[in-house]
Design a protein around this nucleic acid. Sequence first.
RNA 1: GGGGAGAUUCCAGAGUGGCCAAAUGGGGCAGACUGUAAAUCUGUUGGCGCAGCCUUCGGAGGUUCGAAUCCUCCUCUCCCCA
Length: 376
Amino acid sequence: MDFTISHKDTNGSARAGTILTDHGPIDTPVFMPVGTAGAVKALHMKELREDICAPIILGNTYHLFLRPGVNIVEQAGGIQKFNGWNRPMLTDSGGFQIYSMSDIRKFTEDGVVFHSHIDGSKHFFTPERAIDIQRSLGADIIMAFDECTPYPCDYTYASNSMEITHRWLDRCLEQFNKTTCPHGYSQNLFPIVQGSVYKDLRLRSAEYIAAKGAEGNAIGGLSVGEPVEMMYEMTEAVCAILPYDRPRYLMGVGTPANILESISLGIDMFDCVMPTRNGRNGMLFTRNGIINIRNEKWKDDFSPLEPEGEVFTDYEYSKAYLRHLFVSKEMLAAMIATIHNLGFYMWLMKEARNQIIAGTYSAWKDVMVKKLMQRL
RNA sequence: GGGGAGAUUCCAGAGUGGCCAAAUGGGGCAGACUGUAAAUCUGUUGGCGCAGCCUUCGGAGGUUCGAAUCCUCCUCUCCCCA
């Protein structure tokens, strides 16, 4: 994997660059749509490629492990072949499920036992196992097995958890270094900074992670309910320590405003379920602000979803029609909303990149943040 | 023509003397959602000067301290037989 930074904003730490993987290039800053089970819900790969123009999508180790199972994906020739995406992919390690499925797992120094949410069967995930599975799945970027801590999280817990995540990282690296991708191309392991909302822990974690010299580095355990100011504070502190010349990935973020602010702090990569999940639930992100398309006020608004938009959903469908589809529970509603939202996120990233290249990012960002978070 | 069943808050449908402004579901309205156990979940849904009051259970009377619930008549709907 190769990362080159081509431009830096004149104000702040925003930068534009390109990540090169064996499955193709990724211009940064980048937003990566989440495709947990190997599919971005409600979408065809064709739409993701040709209409939304996503350069990379996510998959999830825990979910793909349970279904369809590692062997199936490996037999298919890797996740990109199995799902027909054929472009770069990133798999999360299952660390987020330690947080999101905390009631059906048991956490120990050695690893985590998950009780499958599908059939209750027990599965022991260790750092080594998380790497082995991700080797078989074959994503271009794979993640270290970490614990995503909840919020609020007391200092002692956050500190112990961070130490475990660090020890797990060493085990991940060891396993990663003595294995190869069975599909013949190269994979890159990203370690993850933890430390909850405690600055000293975050700094220590960032130092620890930076010292590993990985191809890219991630920040996890944020956007789990803490005030945004804390999230920005932690991100800024960590970015100051993580290597400048490697991509920085802020996991699970976020709203358009969160993303624009974090780009200013030096983040290059993002992922979030918000444009897809919230889209399926009727929330539309637009260039003028946020719309709850189910609201009665849109019932006779025949204007296009996004008059200036470039994706077909933006100008081919009206707000009134999309509201009708949601109210009628038509599955086309989820499809249109998802394409629209992801199209918007992609546009936002492209625009951010152009502003960075032009050296005008920071001023542009201030105007956009206010505009994008308005409720229409 | 004869016999039977029934009319409940937007709809369906409980309730058959006080705990009923009335269960539950649907629909409506609004909200939540940040490395996806989510095409999910939550709240609300007669009116008002709202810890109280007013108007509601087909219509009109009546019984009772008290009625959506009991009685009388009326109106309408559905089913069966001819």
